[in-house]
Simulated scan of single mutants.
Amino acid sequence: MDAAAAGAEFWVETGHDRLHARCWPVPDAGPARPPIVLLHDSLGCVALWRNFPGRLAAATGRRVIAYDRLGFGRSDPHPGRLGPGFVLEEAKGGLAAVLARFGIGEFVAFGHSIGAGMAIAAASARSGTCRGVISESAQALVEERTLAGIRAAQRQFAQPGQMARLERYHGAKAAWVLDAWTGTWLSPEWAGWNLDAELRAASCPILAIHGEGDEYGSARHPERIAALAGGPVTVRLLPRCGHVPHREQEADVLQAVAAFLA
């Protein structure tokens, strides 16, 4: 990956910890538009977005910013376990610090998987400045398909050598990252979790992208988003697509996002 594709590197001080971030500028300078902030999935980080942020900037004519949440990627370690309110808290914590570091007022939140839940939470918590949400493979409630997929992944990571896949991106924090995903979702305290309140309070337009073959969630999730959101929702179901549309069907995702933001 060349320097332009990787984006420019930044560090975000939260007052207690440092978060790692990268920024991809608009290739051809034009009218200033609210930038897109990327929120990664449960095992994700900036590096795992790969070349997508640069291509997203080119397709939309908007600056794109991605950051590693606390405990993930190159950001500082998390001091403990994720609490039951961590999805909403990210909008008021790490995301708020990133917006302040880059001097961002209005923005568009683009989240993948649980990051999509955080994008919706950001729209509810920052209704005056979040101008739109791209929800990709969102989990809006606890569904048995999601839990079955997580149990299967848990068994896979228990096999010899599998943790090295996470260590490549999260280093010594890899075991914490895996437990933050599996331990949270499979805990009894998480069984009744949903995004209902955040959806009702989200008044900005939402684009809900979901793969029909998503192994971590059925079409119930975008359907729930469309039914409960306080603003207009466009649902885009992608055939022959799993949990990572921006990698599996990148061209379709870029086209959908560019049309939505136009």
Rank of each mutant, 00 (worst) to 15 (best):
G183W: 01
F260L: 06
A158Y: 07
G54A: 06
L237R: 15
K173W: 08
N51D: 09
G83T: 12
I209E: 04
E250D: 11
Q156H: 15
A6Y: 07
R126A: 02
L70C: 07
S124C: 09
L166V: 06
E215N: 13
K173F: 10
A158C: 15
A6T: 06
A180Q: 00
Q156E: 15
E136I: 11
R74E: 06
A140W: 13
L38H: 01
A153D: 01
E167S: 15
G85S: 13
E143S: 10
G103N: 02
W24E: 06
R224M: 14
G94S: 09
T184A: 13
G117N: 09
G85C: 10
G85A: 14
Y216R: 00
D214E: 09
P77F: 05
S113Q: 05
T146F: 12
T129A: 08
A29Y: 04
E90K: 07
L48W: 05
R247I: 10
S75R: 02
S135E: 04
R18D: 13
G71M: 01
L39Y: 08
G128Q: 05
M118R: 09
L95Q: 01
L48F: 10
A66H: 04
S113A: 10
M118S: 08
W49P: 01
G149Q: 02
S135Y: 10
V244G: 03
D214V: 10
A258D: 10
G115L: 07
R50F: 05
G61W: 15
D76Y: 08
T184W: 14
Q255L: 09
D17P: 03
A153K: 01
I114Y: 07
I225G: 09
L56Y: 01
N51K: 06
I206V: 05
W11G: 07
L141P: 00
V108W: 02
R155M: 11
G61P: 14
T234S: 12
M118G: 06
L237Q: 12
G85D: 15
S187D: 13
R101W: 08
E89L: 14
F10V: 03
A219H: 12
G7Q: 05
R101M: 05
S187H: 14
V46H: 02
R220H: 05
S218F: 10
L70R: 03
D68E: 12
A172F: 13
R126K: 07
G132C: 08
R165N: 13
E144H: 13
L82N: 15
A57G: 12
V253K: 00
W193G: 10
S127F: 14
G128A: 08
R145W: 11
A251D: 06
T60F: 13
G94M: 11
D252G: 11
Q255P: 03
P239V: 10
V235D: 03
R74A: 06
R18P: 12
L95S: 01
P232H: 02
G54K: 01
I104E: 09
R200K: 08
A3E: 13
V37N: 11
G71R: 01
A158R: 11
A251T: 05
A191Q: 15
P77D: 02
Q255W: 07
H246M: 14
V244H: 12
A262I: 04
P160Y: 05
E13T: 11
Y67Q: 04
E143A: 12
A251R: 09
A21E: 03
